[in-house]
Amino acid sequence: MLLGRVTGEVVATHKSSSHEGLKLLVVQTLELDGTERPGAPLIAVDSVGAGAGDRVLVTLDGWGAMTAVDRFPAPIDCAVLGVVDEVKVEGGDS
């Protein structure tokens, strides 16, 4: 899994039926010390009610993502699994 920060949400009315009712969060991935990773954001289905500004735990495996929102089979390859309270890493916390 990766650490990320929710920066927003995607609104899409015309989408795969298996995505109906799921929030599509825009997540910028972070290093474990909290610094932002470069590159385009992930679009993750939300399974815990995370919102903009939250630091979150993200899976990039489809099967894990489908499990998180209990939708099998569905074209989902990324999901937010939790809101992160704290990270302790040798040589520095965040």
């Binding site: 995607v10 899409a12 599509l24 489809g62 074209p75």
Partner: peptide
């Protein structure tokens, strides 16, 4: 792997599939 799921039960070989048209991206 999930890119072929939208076409189930047809087995369509794909590693990237467009599954949604974005109305807008709300960025806080």
């Amino acid at each position: 792997r999930e890119a072929c799921i939208p076409f189930y039960p047809e087995q369509v070989a794909s590693d990237a599939t467009v599954v949604g048209i974005v109305d807008r991206v709300n960025q806080a």
